[in-house]
């Protein structure tokens, strides 16, 4: 019987080895280990054995069963793996076909620039303020030291609605409004941006509507060197660490002293080129120390408080930073233009 069992084992193992698929394997399993299988049949004949022989043959039979079972399992695993491989091979796709399109939008270039500047100043402790686009003559002009008949009013050709109401020509009225709100009692550290309007004929460098962003810092003992320090920090973060700034005198009715800030030209590194018209410098913004009349009108005692203000045009910055050469492009919304700057 022992021989019978061993022959059965080798026969089974041979068949398992030869099996080519899981179905065959299952058939082998049934044929040997099933209720009517060969091994079962052999074991049924155990009753004929002597009491002494039984444990010996039983042990052999168990070994044979284990051996066949193990071989079946191993083979099954192997075949399963093979089957999976075959299936995966069949599932192969043409990865050169295009992916399913995802619609991605993006911000307007001016928004990107404004938010970048806002974030920069928020990081320096400024708050963001807002104000109306239809302004009173008072806030747009008078409160900023531009009384009726002031020659500098001509610098800003204004869209009037009535004698008293107009489209703001700059974002500066927000400064006056904020100071008034703070009643001359606490420091002001604000930045504001928005649309402004001037009576200009639209062309490559003029637009009747454009944007401004400006800041105001009023506190006790604010120095002009602080303005220089803040502007330097701003310019380096906005335009690159290697940029230098310079201030040169200018004139704005609401600041005294007034300056314009230039940054060293990126193209020629200050040596002079066509971009900077040979000067090595590029004008970026206007700034100055808040005029005492402006402080006083807003309820801040100019003997106690001082401050600085600065303002710039995001369009100009976009033109300098990204080479946009026609201001109208910001407002015609050509999709090719808009998409170009979504990662700006």
């Amino acid at each position: 019987m022992k021989e019978q069992l061993e022959a059965l084992q080798s026969e089974a193992l041979e068949k398992i080895k030869a099996a080519e698929n899981l179905k065959e394997l299952q058939e082998i399993k049934v044929a040997y280990l099933g209720k009517k299988g060969s091994l079962t049949k052999v074991l049924k004949g155990m009753g004929k054995l002597t009491k002494e022989e039984r444990p010996v043959v039983g042990e052999i039979a168990n070994r044979v069963r284990e051996s066949i079972t193990e071989a079946l399992e191993n083979k099954s695993e192997l075949l399963e793996k093979k089957a999976l491989e075959e299936q995966l091979e069949k599932e192969a796709i043409d990865i050169t076909l295009p992916g399913r399109p995802v619609n991605v939008g993006g911000p307007h270039l001016l928004t990107s620039i404004i938010e970048e500047i806002e974030d920069l100043f928020i990081g320096m402790g400024f708050e963001v303020r807002e104000g109306p686009e239809v302004e009173t003559d008072y806030f747009n002009f008078e409160a900023l030291n531009l009384p009726q008949g002031h020659p500098a009013r001509d610098m800003q050709d204004t869209f009037y609605i009535t004698n008293e109401l107009l489209l703001r020509t700059h974002t500066s009225p927000v400064q006056a409004r904020t100071m008034r709100e703070y009643k001359g009692e606490k420091p002001v550290k604000m930045i504001c941006s928005g649309k402004v309007y001037r009576r200009d004929t639209d062309d490559a460098t003029h637009s009747h509507q454009f944007t401004q962003i400006e800041g105001l810092f009023v506190d006790k003992n604010v120095r002009m060197s602080d303005l220089k320090g803040i502007l330097d920090t701003f310019a380096k973060k906005m335009f690159g660490q290697e940029r230098k700034i310079r201030l040169r005198p200018s004139y704005f009715p609401f600041t005294e002293p007034s300056v314009e800030m230039d940054i060293s030209c990126k193209v020629c590194n200050g040596d002079g080129c066509s971009v900077c018209k040979g000067t090595g410098w590029i004008e970026i913004l206007g700034a100055g120390m808040v005029h005492p009349n402006v402080l006083e009108m807003a309820g801040y005692d100019p003997d106690i408080y001082s401050g600085f203000a600065f303002g710039m045009g995001p369009e100009r910055i976009a033109m300098l930073k990204y080479g946009v050469n026609d201001i109208r492009q910001f407002y015609t919304n050509d999709i090719r233009f808009l998409k170009q700057y979504h990662k700006a």
Binding site: F126, N221, V222, K228, D232
Partner: peptide
Amino acid sequence: YDNLPFTLPAGASQAGALT
């Protein structure tokens, strides 16, 4: 103006934030 130093405003700076 080139001879003005670069300074940052004195006093503790409060944190800025969007509303």
